[in-house]
Nucleic acid binder design. Structure first.
Length: 793
RNA sequence: GGGCCCGUGGUCUAGUGGAAUGACGUUUCCUUGACGUGGAAGAGGUCGCCAGUUCGAAUCUGGUCGGGCCCACCA
């Protein structure tokens, strides 16, 4: 390395990435007796390419994990991918231009497996490029045998504990994906709708007008309700109304669900138009539900002339028919918020189907109480968890009428319909290919397989069990009972209601123990205007571009700048700040190494200025350590950044140059070299979690022979050294800085160079001890000590 | 409608009771001894608004306006 040496981040990153892998620097050491620190890493959904949001949040995780590793914890930082279920199916459909509904299941599953194998290596590599210190020696996939085994064991355990049940009832249904979905899979969408007022005849010659947004369900109408206190309709309660066109006669009943003020106060009920229909039907068991909608969203036989039409088509036609019949008396525009399936944006319907559910409603209080025992960072994120639970209206529907997912370990007896659960020893099981180990209780040996697959969340909610070897198949070499729970769950805030919640549910149900001690919630990356980044909006930035232009360390430096849990805008200029920090490190260490090449660390009597900077270093170590302990990586970053750039480079290095360059051996020079060495090494360590590449390069260049650790990243985290604390030197040093900056200001305001000599400097008596330093730094020919601060050129 | 978060120089941001932090931008100056992707100095803020608590409020309380997110939504 010489002064013309430029830092080429691409070469450096590649070199150390390969080194870390070869030397197994991040591989979990099961023989270590240190305290284990297990990270329940989020398995990213395989989606072709990493996006900037990933780079952002995974970097933040990696930073805190690297701190723990250096601190001496025995870190297990696994890596897996989520690559089954609806998101994967959607991806494969898009990449291969196919529709799963138009293929055989077998064919489609094979295509999924093949496609995933094609794209996964590059996908995982993106995580390595940003410098993730995961143990990549073994990665899991949520559809591999180990995970299927774990997921199926989870199901069986819940089944035995009667925490999972099968039910045939109205459930939320996506007519596009043609599967049941869970409450957590919903998203809100505002739409312009019309409230249609329809006048219908009532027996005895009177009439009633109801208002509806869903004309298409007319053929399924089973009742009209009015508020019991509504004076307008009191005399109609109990009578029958005739729905036009269909000529169905329905009762007019009293129900306080009908609001007197909304619409006309009269509601027509066509189960299932929305969730209220369910509640209504349960309240009125005497009414028989008419199922009019098929799984594909088309109206069926019971829809009469509207049979075969989609909801949208039927809506138009019914309105036309009503208009023609003269019963559509009014239409008013209505802003309506509807629930849509988050994966495809399709408005959900309610269909009566048979599904598997995990009980959650019965234990809301327990989940909330237990949630309080987890350390949430930032703390307020716990409220999102609690509010979600409070708002839950459904048990957790885990069955999906899809193809590529973990199969239920379930058969049905062809004779008596008994549910047969697989034996735990035969997992993983595919009921379509395998058979139960024993006959049915009724003696029959013929079975029908459960064809549904599990929702991805049903599997990703057991990541702690997956990584800690609950199924004891030794894919991961752990004693589950000793290792569970994990130390940390890092994740983003949008999946608190799903991943965090479901994982807690499973942990409590299976082990009656929370899955982790800490949960750290990260934010999202936004575009420069503060909008969410979406490929479809065209404002998405690819990490590959950023890595190519600025390097991983600069990207990480940027990601470390957001406050814990906060969203962060992507402003390109902030990447160059990171890049400049890398350059500054490179240059300052480049300077220092000329003087440290043959230096051996030895104890010396320290100069006051050296004690001053070591005090600052100590404070910085303390601030960084405390910040990292509570996952406040951005505070740690700010502290080390200021220490390095302002205190160390701008001040300290300038203060000691004259001693460093002085000829021959001297106490003063030795003191400066000791301090230089100590500061530099600790700066590297403090920056190591944030910028692993440049720091490793400098460590290997300058310190490797002297410090012995094969990698900076498994060297020890700096410890606050009481012996270096010296309040008196700190005070004098601060005064010294004050005088120096006074002199700099005077020179600057006169347009003079900082090297301009001074004829005379008047300064405080307390600095008399620093006469040599002052003369060297200010270029003063003569210094007079007193109470004044004054200069003469 | 309910809840949570936020509102600090042109932009972004630190700061939960005691003289307003840093970055970017901007202006002036400084290049023989690591770095001009640098250094020094300067300009620029009624800390959204109003009221209250306090000796003292960016910080606490109440209200208000504005932005973001989550949840619920009326047939």
């Amino acid at each position: 390395m010489n002064s013309n040496n430029k830092y080429v981040f691409k070469d450096v990153e590649k070199k150390w990435r390969e080194f870390w892998e070869k030397e197994k620097v991040y591989v979990f050491n099961k023989k270590s007796k240190a305290k284990p620190y297990v990270v329940d890493t989020p398995p990213p959904t395989v989606s072709g390419k990493m996006h900037l949001g990933h780079a952002f949040s995974y970097t933040q995780q990696d930073i805190v994990v690297r701190y723990h590793r250096m601190k001496g914890d025995n870190v297990f930082f696994p890596f897996g991918t989520d690559d089954n279920g609806l998101p994967t199916e959607k991806l494969v459909e898009k990449l291969k231009n196919v529709r799963s509904t138009k293929m055989s299941r077998h064919e489609f599953v094979e295509l999924c497996e093949k496609t995933i194998e094609e794209i996964k290596p590059d996908f995982i590599n993106d995580w390595k490029l940003v410098g993730m210190s995961c143990d990549f020696s073994k990665t899991y996939s949520t559809i591999d045998e180990h995970c299927i085994r774990t997921s199926q064991k989870s199901f069986i355990d819940l089944f035995k504990k009667k925490l999972v049940y099968q039910s045939e009832d109205a459930t939320m249904w996506c007519v596009h994906c043609q599967t049941a979905i869970a409450q957590a899979d919903l998203e809100d969408k505002e739409r312009e709708s019309k409230l249609n007022y329809v006048k219908v005849e009532v027996e005895g010659g009177s009439n009633i007008t109801f208002a509806t947004t869903r004309p298409e369900l007319m053929m399924a109408c089973i009742a009209i309700s009015v508020h019991p206190e509504d004076k307008r309709y009191k005399n109609l309660i109990g009578k029958k109304a005739t729905i036009p066109i269909s000529n169905i006669q329905v009762p007019i009943i009293a129900d306080d669900f009908s609001k007197i003020e909304f619409g006309t106060g009269a509601v027509y009920w066509c189960p299932y138009g929305d969730i209220h229909d369910l509640q209504f039907v349960r309240k009125h068991p005497e009414l028989e539900v008419i199922h009019i909608l098929d799984k594909d969203g088309k109206l069926n036989d019971k829809a009469g002339k509207y049979k075969g039409m989609s909801v949208k088509e039927a809506r138009e036609l019914v309105l036309e028919d009503w208009k023609e019949a003269g019963v559509l008396v009014k239409q008013e525009p209505l802003k309506q918020v509807v629930n849509v399936h988050e994966r495809c944006g399709t408005e959900i319907e309610f269909l009566s189907t048979k599904q598997w559910f995990i009980k959650v409603l019965d234990n809301k209080k327990k989940f909330i109480d237990e949630g309080k025992k987890i350390n949430w960072y930032p703390q307020f994120m716990r409220l999102r968890y609690e509010h979600w639970i409070q708002g839950l209206q459904w048990d957790w529907c885990i069955s999906r009428q899809r193809h590529f997912g973990v199969p239920f370990p379930v058969w049905y007896c062809k004779n008596c319909s008994e549910v047969i659960i697989a034996d735990e020893k035969q997992l993983p099981v595919d009921p379509l290919n395998d058979k139960p180990k024993t006959k049915c209780k009724c003696g029959n040996n013929e079975f029908e397989a459960e064809k549904d697959v599990m929702d991805t969340w049903a599997t990703s909610s057991v990541t702690p069990q997956i990584i800690l070897n609950w199924v004891k198949d030794n894919v991961y070499d752990f004693d589950f009972d000793k290792m569970y729970p994990c130390s940390l769950r890092p994740q983003a805030h949008d999946i608190i209601r799903t991943w965090a919640f479901y994982t807690i549910v499973k942990g409590l149900y299976h082990h009656n123990k929370l899955p982790w001690k800490d949960i750290v919630i990260s934010g999202h990356v936004l575009d420069p205007k503060g909008q969410a980044m979406h490929k479809s909006k065209g404002n998405a930035i690819e990490p590959a571009e950023v890595l190519d232009k600025y390097g991983a360390d600069a990207l990480r430096f940027w990601a470390a700048g957001s406050k814990l849990g906060d969203d962060l805008r992507y402003l390109e200029k902030e990447l160059s700040t990171g890049q400049r920090t890398v350059t500054k490190l490179w240059n300052s260490f480049n300077f220092a190494r000329q003087h440290l090449d043959n230096y051996k660390l030895k104890k010396v009597e320290l100069e006051i200025i050296d004690k001053w900077i070591l005090n600052k270093l100590n404070n910085t170590i303390q601030i960084c350590t405390q910040a990292f302990e509570v996952y406040e990586y951005s505070k740690a970053k700010a502290a080390i950044d200021i220490f390095f750039w302002k205190d160390f480079c701008d001040n300290y290095l300038e203060f000691v140059k004259y001693r460093i360059y002085s000829e021959g051996k001297s106490k003063e020079r030795d003191s400066s070299l000791f301090t230089l060495y100590t500061c530099l090494l600790n700066i590297l360590k403090l920056f190591a979690p944030i910028m692993p590449y440049i720091t490793e390069q400098l460590y290997q260049d300058i310190f490797k022979d002297k410090e012995k650790d094969k990698s900076l990243h498994i060297s020890t985290w700096p410890i606050f050294d009481k012996n270096l604390v010296d309040k008196k030197s700190e005070k004098i040093g601060n005064e010294f800085v004050e005088v120096v900056s006074f002199v700099r200001k005077e020179k600057s305001s006169k347009g003079k160079s900082l090297k301009e000599p001074l004829k005379l400097l008047n300064c405080y008596t307390s600095l008399k001890l620093l006469d040599k330093d002052l003369k060297a730094v200010t270029q003063a020919k003569e210094i007079k000590y007193g109470k004044e601060l004054k200069i003469e050129f």
